[in-house]
Design a binder for these strands. Structure first.
Lengths: 149, 149
DNA sequence: CTAATCTCAGGCTTACTGAAATAG
DNA sequence: CCTATTTCAGTACGCCTGAGATTA
């Protein structure tokens, strides 16, 4: 094993956030890959579950995901029957996407599985410290993404 | 502005880490792009500054960067004169990479600039909270990357 | 002869850019 | 005519695979 630390990097909170975030991304991504899903698939399902049917434009804005990629993600989710798409009758330019019953079930399973990643990743912290970290990140998150989740 | 939160996602610490980490990555990446540098360039310079000349193999292991990409990063840094490469006379398979004087100067400037990203990103937190966040992340980081920075 | 190190070419995924098609 | 939304094609980057060359 090599020496443990590169002080010039680990002294920088943005570096730690970036690196730990990357690990979190990879862990959750691997978990989703077991079902042949990707991170955006889960994010889209969660937003649709929390905020009902949405036009793709709003979906893109909420997730800071490019509209052209929303199409691809929804294509995959619709193919599996996890979302339903329908033209908005009031404004026929819009396509409303909503989560289906099977989609909701899968989402609940995924959320439960992410809890295990949570435990692995935050193993060195006790319950109070985890809560503190979560609360701090929540505030940084709200600020960083401008109120969007 | 859209409603602020997707509870199913923001309740998950791995999601917050992943998202905030991505923002941090983007902010630092933009800062580096102004000098036509990338994140790996800064990371490599920092490791070389902290741990003296290293064979590329060790550099790759420390940063969890693929050896074949180490070559490309060092090519770019050597072209700018930020690193020096020389065959290890003791083991001529190895190429020792070290940071140069100009490289050290640039690195110091970059570290100073990252401090402004730090301030932007952590604006909602006071000094004590920033210290707490950093300490918690440091422990999670050490655990997540197995002691490597 | 086997293994380690570096190098190079290329594939795959993700994120983005730009433009076409449809509708208001 | 101009804007909004969706869609599609193509680019750039990060991450990885595999193979070749050199040396231990």
């Amino acid at each position: 094993m090599l020496p443990p630390s590169t002080p010039r990097l680990t002294a920088l909170t943005p570096y730690l956030l970036s690196t730990v975030g990357k690990v979190a991304r990879t862990l959750v991504g691997d978990l989703l890959a077991a079902r042949d899903l990707r991170l955006w698939d889960m994010a889209v399902l969660a937003v649709l579950a929390d905020h009902g049917p949405l036009p793709q434009r709003d979906l893109a804005e909420r997730l800071a995901l490019h509209p052209s990629d929303v199409v691809k993600v929804l294509d995959g989710l619709a193919r599996r029957g996890y979302v339903d798409r329908a033209r908005d009758t009031a404004d026929r330019r819009r396509v409303l996407a909503g989560i289906s019953e099977p989609g909701l079930r899968v989402l609940d399973e995924l959320v439960a599985e992410v809890a295990t990643v949570h435990d692995d990743l935050l193993a060195p912290l006790d319950a109070a410290e985890r809560a503190t970290l979560h609360a701090l990140l929540l505030r940084v998150h709200a600020h960083a993404v401008g109120g969007r989740p």
